[in-house]
């Protein structure tokens, strides 16, 4: 079984990831109170995405999986969500123009 067993991450790594996530949370709250113009939303979502990616890669072990399929599934999930959002917004953002 040993050749197929999953990667075992050390508790130290988990704690480091946790710290990173906490720092990101603090950052995102802080950034919200600074006027960055239209960048505010982008920064907030950027940090959220960074956090999500870290959780997926390290807590959910996608970084260590041998299965390309798992990665494909994760990526396609987000891809189709973006498709739903982008194509819907394509309508809403151009309604006033025509």
């Amino acid at each position: 079984m040993s050749d197929t067993s999953e990667h075992i991450s050390s508790p130290k790594l988990y704690v480091a990831i946790w710290l990173l996530l906490m720092v990101c949370t603090a950052l995102t709250v802080g950034a919200a109170f600074i006027d960055l113009g239209p960048l505010n939303t982008i920064v907030a979502l950027g940090i959220a995405t960074l956090k999500a990616v870290v959780v997926v890669l390290y807590f959910m072990h996608v970084k260590y999986t041998h299965e390309r399929m798992t990665k494909a599934v994760v990526v396609s999930g987000f891809f189709f969500l973006l498709l739903l959002l982008a194509l819907s917004m394509m309508d809403y953002t151009t309604r006033g123009l025509g």
């Binding site: 995102t28 919200a32 907030a44 959780v55 959910m60």
Partner: peptide, 24 residues
Amino acid sequence: GLYWHFVDIVWIYLFPLLYLIDRH
């Protein structure tokens, strides 16, 4: 665990989207 992390990720997005609009 995967399920729990997923629920966490949803909140990671909900927090800035719901709580942090135009706070500055």
